[in-house]
Design a protein around this nucleic acid. Structure first.
Lengths: 242, 242
DNA sequence: CGAGTGATTGACTGGTGTCAAACCCTGTGG
DNA sequence: CCACAGGGTTTGACACCAGTCAATCACTCG
């Protein structure tokens, strides 16, 4: 079973430098593990949590709940991600976080994290940077859903998830377990399910990727990036994967 | 002429508590004022700035430059906003910032700000919170451009800008100077110019607002909020305006 | 074995993008 | 002082993309 400290330190080091002392403080974070079943919310819109969750395994998603009932998915998160870091300094959650597969999250008390910031500012800067990369991903999603063609939109999402997962070591043989359903893609990309499916067939026909039953297979990475207009700069990772 | 310290402290206090010492440090920030003409870029995609800009007067916007030429506007910023705060911890700008009207920005050296964080963590927390509210605004933009009808989309943008401007004291008699052209609205909301114009007529016909030559007039705020499904919670302001 | 969800495909229609033209306004240069 | 250029705004015509609706099939889970 993966442990919090390894996953978290590895993730922060993808973009930030941490000294031995910093790492020691992070490793000392007390936490409890929470097991989640698919579709289980662990933070709801309006909550004011006093613990912060780091994903240990599985996938989680953030979403807005719309007045009429449906959702708008905002981002997807894998092991090492910190999907509710912004709750450290914002009182009420403006969106919800749910598991989209079976997942484990580690819950760390806010107080402990804040204390670490005051003790060792670089830890704060690293986590701040994490939230800033989050924001960059949101910006890219605005552009993706507003300015790109439907196939580019979908390809870009696949590129981003694949790239991030590869950086986190979750990709084997160009395959990535991605438990997202077509209706969920629809509520992510702002497209009707029928269009999602037709666009997906189109992408399959381009022989750049395949996606079936929660498994993403990338067959021609450079070409897929071209279709999706994907440039990973906005992810601000120090060392690109591979 | 408005001065940096007043504007900045007032803005941060909209969402954060600052002690007298914190305020004193912020007032001590050295800075230079830069005058901008409409459409002038002051940060470009790919830059690695070593100063951070706070808007003193006028409006600025952040945008992505798309490969084919057009832009995707991401957010608009008014006096007191800190449109490039994320550059404090991210090396390369993943988007550009430009003036959309004549504007003044105050440039503060990064080093000085970082030093302030180490000296007085609450200052860091306040600015961190500022960047987190930014992120919340981006999330809302994803939902806006992906899940809402065209009229709701446009109404929501008007609501957000009006609400934020009112909190910043920029609204007089329900009027707000908003120097955004229809093509720019198109590149913000992901709609063609023709549709922008038709949707705008529709909103005008609802008698909730008017928009002409850069002047937004709100006539029926509650109804406009209903049309735009606007709930200001995501702006995380301590004291709502009015 | 039925219920529920997801995946897939087809038919239809309305919304929205594209194209085009006209008008207004501003600033510029002759 | 006027003519012109350029950008923004407004409106119309038209075609097609994509959303809605519907039906079928596959699969999982009680």
């Amino acid at each position: 079973m993966a442990s919090l400290d390894k996953i978290l330190v590895a993730k922060l080091k993808e973009h930030s430098r941490l000294s031995g002392e910093d790492v020691a403080v992070i490793r000392g974070f007390s936490h409890s593990i929470r097991e989640l079943v698919p579709d289980e919310d662990f933070i709801r819109q309006g909550d004011d949590p006093d613990v912060s969750a780091v994903v240990i395994s599985g996938w989680v998603a953030r979403y807005h709940l719309l007045p009429n009932g449906p959702r708008q998915y905002l981002s997807f998160h894998m092991a090492g991600d910190w999907p509710d870091a912004q709750a450290l300094f914002l009182d009420r959650m403006d969106h919800a976080v749910c598991a989209i597969s079976a997942a484990q999250v580690a819950c760390i008390p806010h107080k402990e994290i804040i204390k670490a910031f005051e003790l060792r500012p670089p830890i704060g800067f690293a986590i701040w940077r994490e939230t800033l990369i989050d924001a960059a991903i949101f910006r890219e999603a605005i552009t993706n859903n507003s300015a790109r063609s439907k196939p580019a939109r979908m390809a870009h999402l696949f590129c981003e998830l694949f790239y991030r997962a590869r950086a986190g070591g979750l990709v084997r043989e160009n395959e990535l377990t991605l438990p997202i359903s077509l209706p969920q893609f629809g509520e992510t990309l702002g497209m009707a399910i029928a269009t999602i499916n037709r666009t997906l067939s189109e992408l399959r026909a381009s022989r750049t990727m395949d996606f079936r039953t929660g498994l993403l297979t990338v067959r021609d990475w450079p070409k897929l990036c071209v279709i999706g207009q994907f440039d990973p700069g906005y992810l601000h990772l120090k060392r690109p994967p591979r």
